[in-house]
Amino acid sequence: MTTPPTGSLLTAQDLRKTYGHTHALDGAGFAIHPGEVVAIMGPSGSGKSTLLHCLAGILPPDSGSIMYNGREMTSMSDGERSALRRSEFGFVFQFGQLVPELTCVENVALPLRLNGTSRKEAERAALGWMERLEVDDLKGKRPGEVSGGQGQRVAVARALVTGPRVLFADEPTGALDSFNGERVMDLFTDAARSTNAAVVLVTHEARVASYSDREIVVRDGRSRDMERAI
């Protein structure tokens, strides 16, 4: 087992997770620096989403270590882990992450509202991010009234609004055509780089992965860091 490089923000070693007889993770590792975009690639069912969920503190692994900023995540209480998720992490998924009853700007402002920020201030910050993602003109619309690509850019704005240090994205462009997918990736990675956030990007599409700085490949629950493999 190699030791993670120094200066990493988030590292994992020897993660294992089984579902019945399925070894979803079978000794996977990971490391990311601030400001880095790392793609997690690999065939369907290889354990990419499971790895992302463990790294993000959504899913506890059966064994192994996950260090975030010098703290062992696996020994935190559920409350500590969810506080960490709210304040330090942002999430973008493939579908269905916006609240249909709220307008787009209310959706983007929501994480700040939940943290106790006033409505006025939260929506002002939300609009700033919506401008960055070029969706500010949609502020009064509801998610059902915008296109898939626009909805994903609203979701990216929402993930960024709290100023997270790590963004987790699981197939963020999986439901989009390649043109809109690339537009999302372009704006997403630019915005993340401008805040020095790290991005953990699960994708099986090479064109999407080409927006990353490096990739790791997951196969049968084991990860391979291609940077260090060569």
Binding site: S210, Y211, E215, V217, I230
Partner: peptide, 19 residues
């Protein structure tokens, strides 16, 4: 499998430059 992994990585390297 290793040959394919290393090739993927090399292709991605070129794709990053182009992107």
């Amino acid at each position: 499998g290793d040959i394919l992994d290393v090739q993927r990585s090399e292709h991605l390297r070129s794709m990053r430059i182009l992107t």
